[in-house]
Each structure stands twice: as C-alpha cells, then as structure tokens.
Computed example of a mutant assay.
Amino acid sequence: MKLAGEIRSSGVAATLVVHEHKRLGRGIELAVLAEEVKASDVGLEFLTGELKGSHDPCGIVLTVLTAMSGMECEYIRDRTLEGHESARRRGKTIGGASVTDESMLSMALHLREGKGMSLCDIAKRLVITSGAKKGQHPSPATVMRMLREHDERTAGALAT
C-alpha cells in the first residue's frame, strides 16, 4: 500500500491488485487499509471471487466489505466457542493431546498443599512423561487447569 501511495503521489495512476477480497484482512485491519486506499487515491482490483474486477476505493464496496468482514469474524468466533462448549458437554478435550497424568496430578497436589508452592514453581518441578513434549515441563497454565479440574471434580463428588 505504501509503494502504491508513493507511485500515485508522483502523478502516475496506481492500482492495488488483490487475489481475493478476503486477502485484504478483517475487522479493524481492513478498516485502516480502506482509509489508506481512499486517502492515497489508489485504485482497487480483485482478481477472483465475488468482487472480481476494478472498484472505486471511495465507493461503497470497501465500506460494505469492511462491515462484512467484521461480521464474519464474529460469526467464526461464535461458532468456534459453540463448538468448544458442545465438545465439553460431551466430555471431549479441547485443544491438543493432554500432557498431564495421574502421577503428575498427585505430585502437583502434594507441592501445592504440602509446600504451598506457586503454579510457576510447581510447573518447574513436574516433567511430562509421554508424547511429543516428553521430558519438558508443563506450562503454569496447564498446571492451573489440571488443579482446577481436580478441584471441580472433588467439589462435585462432595456435593453429591
């Protein structure tokens, strides 16, 4: 965009050519780019997709495109969160393979309760025993999740 603006400022017509409108960006990123295109008086052309062809950057196309891409981001985010929630209800794990096991949980509980250690200190003492991360330490976030899930299971068992 910067190069197209420099070319245009020298008096030569310039056009920003994009493979497809989705390649321009989403949300705020696209809104900023739309303002830059308008301010630079640079043309806009899409090679493929629903908007194939040349467009006036000051016209409604970029405005509508910006609004639509923001809505698409929200739609993708909402569907992803719904999918995660649905998987949780079915008892499925979200994310990659679990790096924790019962012996790691037992050690983490001992370090938390017996020694009163922080999550970071506990994570430094634990070692992953299988999988691609074998021999590494779990992250403090993983330790926190493991302990929280244990506490929730324990509280649920006591409540029933």
Rank of each mutant, 00 (worst) to 15 (best):
V127A: 10
S86K: 14
S54P: 12
K2Y: 09
G156A: 12
E36K: 13
A132R: 15
T93C: 14
A67V: 13
K92A: 09
G135F: 08
G156F: 10
D101E: 09
G27K: 02
L109T: 11
E6H: 08
G114L: 08
A108I: 04
M104F: 09
C120K: 13
A31K: 07
K133N: 11
V99D: 12
L62K: 01
V143K: 00
I28G: 00
A97N: 09
V127Y: 05
S9N: 11
D121E: 14
L24G: 05
E50W: 02
G96V: 05
E149A: 07
S9K: 10
M68Q: 04
M104W: 10
R26T: 15
G43L: 10
A31I: 14
E6W: 10
H19M: 08
G25K: 07
F46P: 06
Q136T: 14
M71R: 11
P57K: 02
S69Q: 04
M144P: 01
D78A: 14
G25Y: 08
A123N: 00
L44W: 08
V12L: 00
K134P: 06
E102Q: 08
I128W: 07
R145P: 01
D151H: 05
T129E: 00
L3C: 01
D41T: 15
G156S: 12
S103I: 13
S54R: 11
K134Y: 08
S103D: 15
D41R: 10
R23N: 15
R79S: 06
A123G: 01
E82H: 09
E74H: 11
L147V: 04
K52T: 15
K22C: 05
H150G: 03
I7F: 00
R79Q: 13
A155L: 04
H137P: 03
T100S: 03
A39C: 10
L65T: 07
I128L: 06
M68C: 07
D101I: 14
I94L: 13
R145Y: 03
Q136M: 05
E102R: 05
G95L: 07
M1G: 05
L119W: 03
C58M: 10
S10T: 15
D56Q: 03
E72K: 02
A4F: 03
L44G: 04
M146Q: 11
S98N: 13
H21G: 01
A97P: 12
T100D: 00
E6P: 00
I122C: 04
R79L: 09
S69K: 01
G114Q: 06
L51F: 12
K115P: 14
L62N: 01
M107N: 13
Q136A: 02
L47Y: 05
L16W: 09
D101L: 12
A155M: 03
I128T: 11
A34H: 04
